[in-house]
């Protein structure tokens, strides 16, 4: 959704983040969160690593589906919001930790059934994405999957045209207010393949700009 660019404004005040994201994306972001959680948790007790948990919206959905979750974010403020949202209900099944995505390389190999990144991969530089995807693959247990929910560049020309037209004024506004914008991932499939992953399930929004993708190790 092109209005995702406005998330930059919301990030400057985590208190407003969730409500703002819901309104600006016309409900698309909560749907994306649902899809990500559904793709990541196949059974109760699944061990899920979440990269860039933000205010904990996806984290809660993962927990509600019965997963044991280790959720990371580099921002102490976002983690504060996540703690406030999730409360003490999930003791024993949730570990919230301040960490960058790159530091998942220190986690034990083959220790997670799913690694989830919702709206965080597109925030990274190309070299960081490559590193993080490789580390995510290493962290996956046999049969595990990487789930990416993010802003992607649409595939079809008409979608890309509409995307640019709708996005431009919003991006400009956000850039004026916050001095930055989001960057849709141009070739997620290619990056997943380079990390030794193949896409097994994908859900795209009508405009093709938001997608939840599940990928597993190449056999």
């Amino acid at each position: 959704m092109s209005s995702l660019v406005l998330m930059r404004i919301l990030e400057s005040a985590p208190d407003r983040y969730d409500a703002g994201m819901r309104v600006l994306s016309l409900g698309a972001v909560p749907r994306l969160h649902e899809q990500a959680a559904r793709l990541a948790v196949h059974k109760a007790g699944a061990r899920v690593l979440e990269i860039g948990c933000g205010t904990g919206a996806v984290t809660r959905l993962l927990l509600e589906r019965g997963a044991n979750v280790e959720a990371l974010d580099h921002s102490p403020e976002m983690l504060d919001r996540a703690r406030a949202r999730l409360g003490d209900h999930w003791t024993g099944r949730l570990l919230l930790r301040e960490s960058t995505a790159a530091e998942i390389d220190a986690l034990p190999a083959a220790s997670f059934d799913a690694v989830v990144a919702s709206l965080s991969l597109s925030e990274m530089s190309a070299s960081e994405r490559t590193y993080v995807l490789a580390a995510a693959v290493r962290a996956l247990a046999p049969g595990g999957r990487v789930v990416i929910a993010d802003e992607l560049r649409p595939r079809l020309l008409w979608q890309r045209t509409v995307h640019v037209v709708v996005r431009l004024p919003l991006a400009l506004l956000t850039w004026i207010v916050t001095g930055t914008t989001t960057h849709a991932i141009a070739d997620l499939g290619g990056e997943l393949a380079a990390a030794g992953l193949r896409t097994v399930e994908e859900h795209r929004s009508a405009l093709g700009t938001l997608a939840a993708v599940a990928a597993e190790r190449e056999r």
Binding site: H74, T100, A101, A102, S127, E128
Partner: peptide
Amino acid sequence: GGLLTTSQVVTALKTCG
């Protein structure tokens, strides 16, 4: 302003090669 912190430096050192 919190945009060049320990996290960004750790990320850069680990991922840039």
